[in-house]
């Protein structure tokens, strides 16, 4: 009788042990991950091809860690603006349509939309400016965007918004705001998808 009871006890404990190791347990591997304190230096990952596009060190930092941002000035065709916009006014017939006609300004809601000089410095055309009158370089336009879109900026600094350029390891290089969002018409256009899902039964 006692032997049978002992056998059943062993069987039960064995099964309980097996069950405890399976999934659907209360702990998750995330708890173990969050306990890890040591930092991981992603720059120590070997053989990472460095980003070849032009970058600049960002003026903001994420948690005290610096990162680089793609430059913007080399993407702008007519930079420097001061080539035309000197201290005298530009007196060309229909000048706006000829030079800046490709820009459609659609930033903000109807009736509350932004105007050109809301972002562009009226005197120093090579710079942007914010509402406090501070000059902001084109390469660091995130400082301006972030004044209104502060939530996205916070996410962008952390990595939940925007993207790294090409690598997950190595030095952190991320896209700047204007890389993805046309600053004059930031909303993504409706378009057809790049592909479609074929019928699932062949």
């Amino acid at each position: 009788m006692q032997k049978i009871l002992l056998m059943y006890a062993c069987l039960f404990l064995g099964l309980a042990g097996v069950a405890g190791q399976g999934g659907a347990s209360e702990t998750s591997f995330l708890d173990e991950i969050k306990d890890i304190q040591e930092n991981f230096d992603s720059r120590a990952v070997e053989n990472v091809r460095p980003v070849t596009r032009e970058t600049v060190l960002a003026k903001d930092q994420f948690n005290g860690r610096p990162f680089r941002v793609l430059t913007r000035k080399n993407e702008i065709n007519r930079f420097k603006c001061s080539n035309c916009h000197t201290d005298k006014a530009v007196a060309v017939n229909q000048g706006v349509e000829l030079t800046h006609g490709s820009i459609s300004l659609n930033h903000g809601r109807e009736g509350q939309a932004l105007a050109c000089i809301d972002c562009h410095h009226p005197e120093e055309r090579d710079y942007l400016w914010d509402k406090k009158g501070e000059k902001i370089d084109f390469d660091h336009s995130y400082q301006l965007c972030g004044h209104c879109h502060f939530r996205q900026k916070r996410d962008w600094l952390g990595g939940a918004h925007g993207k790294r350029v090409a690598n997950w390891a190595g030095e952190r290089v991320i896209y700047n705001c204007a890389s993805c969002h046309d600053p004059h018409s930031p909303r993504f256009e409706k378009r057809y998808p790049a592909t479609y899902s074929p019928p699932l039964d062949r």
Binding site: S42, V45, N167, W168, A169
Partner: peptide, 26 residues
């Protein structure tokens, strides 16, 4: 050390990839 093709191709930046063991990662 490169991003997966899907992350790199996404035009809206909806995909985030990184090292879970790095507390500073995205």
């Amino acid at each position: 050390g490169r991003l997966p093709a899907c992350v790199e191709a996404c035009p809206t930046g909806s995909r985030v990839f990184g090292n879970l063991l790095d507390p500073e990662s995205e």
